[in-house]
Amino acid sequence: MKSSKISTVMGKMIDTQKLVFEYIRRDEEGNVEGITRAVDGVDLKVEQGQFIAILGHNGSGKSTLAKHFNALLYPTEGEVYVDSYNTEDDDHLWDIRQEAGMVFQNPDNQIIGQVVEEDVGFGPENMGIPTEEIWERVDEALKAVRMDKYRKASPNHLSGGQKQRVSIAGVIAMHPKCIIMDEPTAMLDPNGRREVIRAARALNQVEGITIILITHYMEEVVDADKVFVMDKGSVVMEGTPREIFAQVDKLKELRLGVPQVTLLAHELRQAGVPLPDAILTRKELVEALKKCR
C-alpha cells in the first residue's frame, strides 16, 4: 500500500495525505483526559518554488500543521512527505530538517548566538560544514536578507524585523529548498512586517526557494501563488489569492478579515458600483474606478 503512495509524491516539495494530529491531554496518572484534534484530515500539496500562504485565525491548527513539515511533530494518522522523504523515517530526519527550514513567531526565542554572524552560522555548524564554507554561507545568507551591515552586532540591539531577518538568514545558511514561516510577523510592527515579507518574497523570486507563510494578516498573502485557509483543523478554502478574496462573506464567516482595499471594493459593489470581483491592490481599485466613469 505504501509503495503505491511513494510513486505519487515524487516532485512535490511538501505533500500531506489525510494528515491527522491529536493533542492528548493526560491527568497525573497518565490516563487520557481528553483528545483535541488539532489537524483533521489535511491533504495539502506544495510544488517546488511556490509561494504558499496558510491562513487561519488562532487555534485553526495552522501552526500544528507547520510543525509537521519540519518533523517536529509526527502525524497521528496519515503521512507527510517532504521532498519525497516520509517525515517518520528517522534515517532522513536531518535531511528533512535541512531541506525544510523553519522560522518561528518569537524572534527572541530562536536566536542562539550572541553575535548575529554566529547565530547564522549555528545551523551549518550543526550540519558539520567545514569552517571556511560556513563563513561563505554566512556572508551569502546575511546579504540575501540585507543584514550584512549588522553581522557583528548583538541580537539584543536589533529591532524585531531585523531579528526575524537574522532568523531567516540562519535558515538560508543551511541551504534549504523550502522555508516554513510560522507567523513570523505576528510580534512585529508594520515596518518590521514589511521588511520580513519583502525578504521572503525576494528569496522566493531570486533564489527559487519554496516559501510557506503562515499568517493571519491578509495583506501578506496577496502575492502568494496559492492560499490555503484553515479552520478547526481542516483546509476549508484553497486557491489563488484572487479566488479566495472573491468570497468576502465566507471569509468573514471564518472570522478572517480581507485586505481593506478588497473590502472597500466589495462594499462598493454591493452598493451598486460595477466593479470586478476580488480587487487586491489599491492600484487595481483606482484603475477599476476610472473605468466606471
Binding site: 517536529l72 535541512q98 523553519m102 518561528f104 530562536q110 542562539i112 550543526n126 550540519m127 540562519g170 543551511m174
Partner: peptide, 10 residues
C-alpha cells in the same frame, strides 16, 4: 521555544 528552534536547525 528555543529547544524547538535549535532542533529545527539540526
Amino acid at each position: 521555544d528555543l529547544a524547538m528552534a535549535m532542533e529545527a536547525r539540526c
